[in-house]
Computed example of a mutant assay.
Amino acid sequence: MRNFHLLFWPLLVAALIVLFIKLKDKSYLQNDTTPNGIISLELGSTYTADTAIVQSSKSDTLDRTTITLCQPHPRPIQRLHKARFDVFVDFGFIFIYTLLGFVIITTLQSRIQKGGHWSTRLLIGLLLLAAFLDCLENIGLLSFINDGINHEPRASGTTAFITHIAAWANSSSSADYSSSIFRSHSSSGTTACSSSPTILHPRPSSCSATASS
């Protein structure tokens, strides 16, 4: 891809900005029931567990990270609103990493110089699968978070099950995608080395050797 640097670096910077926002808000979403923040809600395998996590975020509304010597009392914080904002931000992150992955895949394909290679189709398929599972997971998270904000229980055990399965499947597909990227990069390096022309330096003939002596 000729415009690799023009596309790769802006997308990478955008992805890092979104990751910074999510990491910054992670401390706001942690309490005794959710030590891992919103990840605890992602990995909740049952409706009861997810509902308990949402209820703990509603009852524990104090930001203990703001406690200092000058401010001994923690400030109140709307954890569920923070969590919903982070889920919406994650939708943007899905769009960014999908574009970034597509740029990387097409660049590796151009280095391999093989049209329609099976590894390219595999990587694009894994990338789209990861994006789909991530969106499915976020929809389930929003269902539980909106239930806690609006006090209207609409999520069900099926919602918790689908969210849990999507989270684990997304982790598996992301691992497969990373390993496939590494294998494609290794094969592209091998192909580049094998396709490079070999320069043979001719040995001096016996006539030139005799003349020089």
Score class of each variant (00 low, 15 high):
Ser45Tyr: 10
Thr65Asp: 00
Val13Glu: 09
Met1Leu: 07
Leu136Glu: 01
Trp118Arg: 08
Leu126Arg: 06
Ser208Asn: 05
Ala175Met: 15
Thr33Pro: 02
His151Trp: 05
Lys82Ile: 12
Gly189Lys: 15
Ile181His: 10
Gln30Phe: 02
His5Tyr: 14
Arg84Tyr: 11
Thr106Ile: 04
Gln55Arg: 13
Lys82His: 05
Thr65Leu: 07
Lys58Ala: 13
Lys24Pro: 00
Arg79Gly: 10
His151Asn: 13
Asn3Leu: 08
Thr163Lys: 13
Asp50His: 01
Leu41Ile: 08
Leu12Gly: 06
Pro197Phe: 07
Asp25Ala: 11
Ser172Asp: 04
Thr120Ser: 09
Arg121Thr: 14
Gly157Trp: 05
Pro74Gly: 06
Leu128Pro: 02
Ile53Cys: 00
Asn36Trp: 07
His81Pro: 04
Leu41Lys: 00
Ser195Glu: 12
Ile38Cys: 04
Asn36Met: 02
Ile149Glu: 05
Ser56Asn: 01
Cys135Lys: 04
Ala14Thr: 08
Cys193Ser: 12
Leu142Phe: 02
Ala14Tyr: 06
Phe85Ala: 00
Met1His: 12
Asn170Trp: 03
Ile67Gly: 02
Asn150Leu: 09
Leu80Ile: 01
Ala15Cys: 06
Leu141Tyr: 01
Arg2Ala: 06
Thr46Lys: 11
Val89Ser: 03
Val103Cys: 02
Ile149Trp: 04
Cys135Leu: 08
Phe95Tyr: 07
Asp63Lys: 04
Arg154Tyr: 07
Asn150Pro: 00
Asp90Asn: 07
Ser40Lys: 03
Thr191His: 13
Phe4Tyr: 15
Ala131Lys: 04
Ser174Arg: 15
Gly92Thr: 05
Ser156Tyr: 01
Ser59Ile: 14
Ala166Pro: 01
Leu16Gly: 09
Leu123Met: 15
Thr158Met: 11
